[in-house]
Design a protein around this nucleic acid. Structure first.
Lengths: 220, 220
DNA sequence: CTATCATTCCATATATTTATTGAATGATGA
DNA sequence: TCATCATTCAATAAATATATGGAATGATAG
């Protein structure tokens, strides 16, 4: 095999990967799986796809070794193959936002509703955790919290927040997080909290980015 | 615009990017452009494509804002749009290698010819540079060296190496680099050097990764 | 063993992407 | 101005990817 053939093989292989990533449905599936494992049914439901179509896309991702599957009772659960997948997905997400003014604008428009949205970095949060001067709230659906969450975090799904405000202390800073920079549940939760006199901030990204940095998490 | 529409827009945009990356020719073009700007003619020649086809692929990349173009005299030069493009490309390359045993094997096979290939990290090289105990050689074509190179590096293109061995000191360690982990010119140069009694090692990746880390470079 | 249910496979019509060819554009140099 | 040359555009046929609906698979529960 000469250099030319080596290169051809290489780029062929790489394009196998990028082709598998080159479809909006599959990117949405990866976004979901970045939260944690999920079944075909769950994926189809949350992405507005038919089961058959979702399954077909999952096979494409699986053949490209981007995701893996494992049977758990009646269901087959899919998950990201490894850390490199998350890193690549993350780099692509960053690239999309940096290059697309429309996307950025959409996010800014959403965020601008909360005029005083305070954002804290993972590093700052770790410091606050160590000094025990913060309450962390995970506003994702309980299912995702049970799968894995930031250490010390309480699970208060966004849809139950208003009825559970009395569980929260009003003398500590509150940090809210959800699925990632694109997830707006935390933003909405913070708006509710601040309107009720709490002092709430948003974690910069969300659970998947936290876990990717090997910061402390808990399961169950 | 509701959440569903927002998501649809987002993944649509992201897939615009990944689709543009989802072709072996375009990945090879990016690999070339990661070294520095290049004209259509240069790209077509180095990737075994017709001018027309190369131009068409360049337009696809340009429309996706992955690359930019600028006229310079008679030629239009293309270059990567920004750092995020390089990072994403880099993450994809890493993912390809980690997931594909065949690719890894191909590279190992090539590398295994030089049984004692010593590899040093960018950090180690910076230390050695500060202590002035190393000679750095850039074995890429002079064209690419002139565009930009690692600080203090000498340009000795691989094809001229054997006739220029007398320019090198035999009492200092030599570090050789070229275009990146996939570029084999440095490996071959090291084999030649070691066979002539020099003490030569390979820089872990190559010029583009060095520059991406904001380590010291020179132009011209 | 049989029924059930989640998932995958298969066939097909539609849509998108690709390489090739040759004509069009648009800057440069005489 | 005209000729030259790098590059892009446009048209087309071939290849590839997609969504859909229904049949096949294969593990689980009775």
């Amino acid at each position: 095999m000469n250099i030319r053939e080596f290169k051809t093989t290489l780029y062929q292989e790489m394009s196998g990967l990028t082709k598998a990533l080159g479809n909006p449905h599959r990117l949405e599936i990866l976004d979901l799986l970045a939260q944690g494992p999920a079944s075909v049914e769950y994926i189809a439901k949350h992405t507005n796809m038919t089961i058959g179509n979702a399954s077909q896309h999952l096979q494409v991702l699986k053949n490209a070794r981007i995701i893996e599957s494992k049977r758990d009772w009646k269901y087959i659960n899919y998950r990201l193959a490894d850390q490199n997948v998350f890193d690549a997905w993350s780099a692509l997400r960053k690239l999309s936002f940096s290059h697309n003014a429309t996307l950025n604008q959409l996010l800014v428009d959403y965020r601008s509703r909360q005029k005083f949205l305070q954002i804290i970095s993972p590093k700052e949060l770790v410091d606050k955790m160590n000094r025990q001067e913060v309450v962390i709230i995970d506003v994702r659906p309980e299912e995702e919290y049970l799968n894995a969450h930031i250490k010390q975090a309480l699970s208060i799904p966004k849809k139950n927040l208003e009825e559970r405000l009395n569980e929260l202390p009003d003398d500590k800073e509150i940090v809210v997080y959800c699925r990632g920079p694109l997830c707006l549940m935390a933003d909405e939760a913070i708006e509710i909290l601040n309107n009720h006199g709490f002092n709430a901030a948003r974690l910069e990204n969300g659970y998947p980015d936290w876990a990717a940095k090997n910061l402390p998490v808990e399961v169950g």
